[in-house]
Amino acid sequence: MFQILAQNALNALQLGSVYALIALGYTMVYGILTLINFAHGDIFMVGTYLSLAAAVFLLGLPLGLPLVVVFVGALCFSMALTAVLGVVIERLAYRPLRQAPRVSAVITALGVGLFLENFTLGILGPEPRHFPTLIPLQAWEIWGLTITPLQILIILGAAVLMVLLDFLVRRTLLGMAMRAISYNRLIVPLMGVPVDRVISLTFAIGSAIAAAGGLMYGLAYPVLDPYMGIRIGWWAFIAAVVGASAISGEPCWGALSWAQWRFSPRCCCRLPLTGTSWPFPSCSCSWSSSPRACSAGRYLRECD
């Protein structure tokens, strides 16, 4: 019994880490602009496809590159390009609307998301793509638990990214500027904070993290289609809303990442027990686990 629970928790931690990485982008943008960036799931999708392209390209080179190099190359490539995509979207679609009613911006975000989706569909066609195997497929048995290198990579990788983000938001000047803008966007420019640049950087960081999540998702669940963005992004969005309560009040950055970290695993740890199909969780589990996740978030916020 314990083994089943632990195994499920571990598997859930893997999927939850990916969700958490996407959810961070939602909360960062919401925190700073109070804009629900509905396009974020599709940015994640583009990031996944970019890492697929990089991985396929590097594997196809006649150099016989080691898999580690391919992995790092794909990661850097997709993170960089997706960051650029995020900045471009912000510049072209959201910035002209910064003074407009909030609803206009939300509609624009919906439109941008659908645009990315259908654009990818138009370029690549509807058939799903297979992600190459970059991490050796093997499994270790420890105390009756099956652990794969991929699992460790995803969980540790997500943890490292979150710690880095936490550091960035709490300890650096850029992070301070982000927190200041989310606190009051009118006064902050008077203090000499370059608001536009900070917002651009926020989009870049959020998109890059989503791309990292995209690569991890591709490795773990290696079937990609253009609609994965809206499917996966939606769960991440729920994680962002429930886990971080980013939707109300001013966000507390340090708590956010951890609340998501804590929430997201719970969101899916009941998955295998409820018997839903493997990679795609059902909605019910995320709602049922919400009160605990919320209290965790609140607790952390008070401590912080």
Binding site: A93, A100, S104, I107, T108, G111, V112, G113, L121, G122
Partner: peptide, 21 residues
């Protein structure tokens, strides 16, 4: 235009919101 038709709607929406909300 085939599949590309579905790009037009969202694009139109974004442009509308920006230029003539």
């Amino acid at each position: 235009l085939g599949l590309w038709r579905w790009v037009v709607g969202p694009l139109l929406l974004v442009l509308l919101m920006i230029f003539r909300p």
